[in-house]
Design a binder for these strands. Sequence first.
DNA 1: TCACGGATTCGT
DNA 2: CGAATCCGTGAT
Length: 179
Amino acid sequence: MTKLSIDTTGIRLHRNFFTRDVLEVAPDLLGKVLVRQFEDNTISRWIITETEAYKGEEDRACHASKGRTPRTEVMYRQGGYIYVYLIYGMYWLLNIVTGKRDQPQAVLIRGLSAINGPGRIGKQLNLDQSFYEEDLNTSRRLWLEKPTQNTHAYKSSVRIGIDYAPNEWRLKPWRFSLI
DNA sequence: TCACGGATTCGT
DNA sequence: CGAATCCGTGAT
């Protein structure tokens, strides 16, 4: 007798979800599921609880404000790629590229269920430079899923750690978190 | 080739 | 509040 199994995993989010404007995608990522398959094939899932939007060359808090460089190159691709970078020589921060091609945007994943702080996320997920430009559509080690039941309520506030940016950009309420 | 500073975190 | 820790960036 064959036993039927029910697939309880969510449905992977694909290109069209990420190719929208970052200010739509950043809050929409709240409640979605980040999935990491490690080297030993174990799979972990977390709910995204906090994000920040970085939008275009005009946004002085966005790395792309320095233009197209080897580091920011991936942000100019269409949505659905991973942008990781090392900060303070210690932490790999996880970003998701959004928007259409040549619209340099990304969402910083700032909080996950049970993991607070972007630096700790990179450590827990064991991220490194090899994740730069990882394709969320096809990757077997990192992707996102739409959960069977979603959460909606969230709040917005100002972004953190960007005191170097002029007030016009520093004060944008582009940080989103589940309530 | 060099100097600077950062989308952070932790301990004092 | 200061240290840890190192690479990308822009200037020399």
